[in-house]
């Protein structure tokens, strides 16, 4: 897999700044993500990487700068924002499957409510997606009846059901038991292989090595370093990245 940085970037952040009260969590972020590119964002906790991910579909607002998706500036509120969000898939750390809906309903809700698809059409597509992530047997169960790994795979299927242009993953394996991490990563690696544009906040260095085109290292609300995985892991340019890698790779 190689990066395909042809044409206009699919996601573009320029001069993005965000404060939580006094805390300057995102400082002058410039980042461009090409169509089909898989970018892994890593960094110590509190570095702003999750916040960065959440600004891209405006679950977090920004105070300065501009974010554009597919050449379209992110709207502030209302119908326009809802429409743009429907093109951006999001997978959360804590899954956030709708607790009162079945697995199948979780996956069909967006296509029916937002895309106006018929129930039959949405269910057909949903079953294919559940098959693809390996949880088709659980379609009529409720989220709490599934393991964490299964729930997260359903969450990926739910996001894919909207045919998104880009997928955001906000620490998708951090809430999982160790033996369930791989089943989720396998699905994500498959997606990357199919050419999905992905922004992944994660601590899984194995995933970064196998599937990423680029690793973005953040610290203190800034992007410190951006490099291909091989370069980043074997020969990081900044001291902070070296320090971070020595802490996480020595165990």
């Amino acid at each position: 897999m190689s990066s395909s940085p042809n044409g206009e970037p699919l996601v573009r952040l320029s001069g993005v700044n965000k404060w939580f009260g006094e805390l300057h969590v995102l400082q002058d972020i410039d980042l461009e993500i090409a169509r089909g590119e898989v970018v892994v964002v890593i960094g110590p906790s509190g570095s702003g990487k999750s916040t960065l991910c959440r600004t891209i579909n405006r679950l977090e607002s920004i105070q300065k700068g501009e974010i554009a998706i597919d050449g379209e500036k992110l709207p502030e509120e209302g119908k326009q924002l809802a429409r743009l969000r429907s093109d951006v898939g999001m997978v959360f750390q804590s899954f956030n499957l709708f607790a009162h809906k079945t697995i199948l309903e979780n996956v069909t809700l967006g296509p029916i409510k937002v895309r106006g698809k018929s129930k039959a059409e949405a269910e057909k597509h949903a079953r294919e997606l559940l098959e693809r992530v390996g949880v088709s047997a659980q379609a009529d169960k409720y989220p709490a009846q599934l393991s964490g790994g299964q729930q997260q795979r359903v969450a990926i299927a739910r996001a894919l059901a909207m045919d998104p242009k880009v997928m955001l993953f906000d620490e998708p394996t951090s809430a999982l038991d160790p033996e369930m991490i791989n089943e989720v990563l396998e699905v994500m690696i498959g997606l990357a292989g199919d050419g999905m544009t992905m922004i992944v906040v994660t601590h899984e260095m194995g995933f970064a090595r196998r599937a990423a085109n680029r690793v973005v290292f953040m610290d203190g609300g800034r992007i410190v370093e951006s490099a291909d995985p091989e370069t980043f892991f074997t020969n990081p340019a900044s001291d902070r990245a070296k320090d971070f890698l020595s802490k996480i790779l020595n165990h």
Binding site: N57, L59, A82, R85, M90, F98, L109, V114, A159
Partner: peptide
């Protein structure tokens, strides 16, 4: 949980 509304908004629900 606030994540429920967040997931709905992320799907594009108003």
């Amino acid at each position: 949980p606030s994540g429920q509304a967040e997931a709905a908004r992320a799907l594009g629900l108003d």
